[in-house]
Amino acid sequence: MSTLHALRAKQRALTIRATCLTAIRTFFNARGFLEVETPVRVSAPALEPHLDAEPSGTCYLRTSPELHMKQLLCAGYERIYQMGPCFRQAEQGAWHRPEYTMLEWYRTPADYQDILADTRALLVAVSRAVNGEPTVHRNGRAWTLDGDWEVHTVRDLYQRWAGWDPVAAYEADRFDIDWVERIVPVLEAIPTPVIVTDYPAAAAALARRKPGAPEVAERWELFIAGVELANAYSELTDPVEQQARFEACARERQAAGRAVYPIDSAFMAALEAGLPPCGGIALGIDRWVMLLADAQHIDEVNAF
């Protein structure tokens, strides 16, 4: 009985969630994006230092659909999007679930600035569809989505609030600790959506280096109310650098005693054949619904 009572209490949040999903599809379909579905169960999840994939038989559950979606780009699909479940081991908290829903979209020719323009238009459109206004309300404060968004480089934030420059000399552990202790409180206080951009090349993940400034990567993250909502790249298209990054990451994971996943050979072959210049992004649907519904815990916006 108590489970049914809890489910009934979620009706408002689940309605917001459904409206959000519909508005996202309407947005992308109107702009000529093709909705795709790629495998959830994969043999080679993307190698990242701190993402642990959930094993599934001899395979893994995907941590992101990125590698498959990029193969579609290599095959000539120019605008694609996908919404579906992703899995990350041991991530549990008010803003994390080991199983959650991710929206990813990619387009070519494009870079991370084009993706930013998409993101602004998407958030405004979805917010209007859900709340009737381009605004999200959280803990008694309002964030207007259709005004200016503050943009800060990683270097500026760390120099101002943490007293060092991670672009000049990157220290991974210090970067993370200062991020949660010094930078996030600053982002929380900013009354507009915030773009944090141009990450140190050492924290590039799958982003390309900035032309003319190879010490930074063309990567940005979006924050609203201090909540990390999306991560976007000008995608790395160079197969040699990609191979080197995967191998470096595999060594790092091995040294840390974490599972080392095979390098996805189909993805690497597609990169060799040619990935056109493209931008892409991953946006956490559950968190976006939490912001739209002013929810405090991710469980509030998931039926089960």
């Binding site: 230092p49 701190h50 994390h96 991020w179 993940a205 991560n231």
Partner: peptide, 9 residues
């Protein structure tokens, strides 16, 4: 529980 960007738990 927090996990900044591509960072550690």
């Amino acid at each position: 529980f927090v996990k900044p960007g591509k960072g550690q738990a």
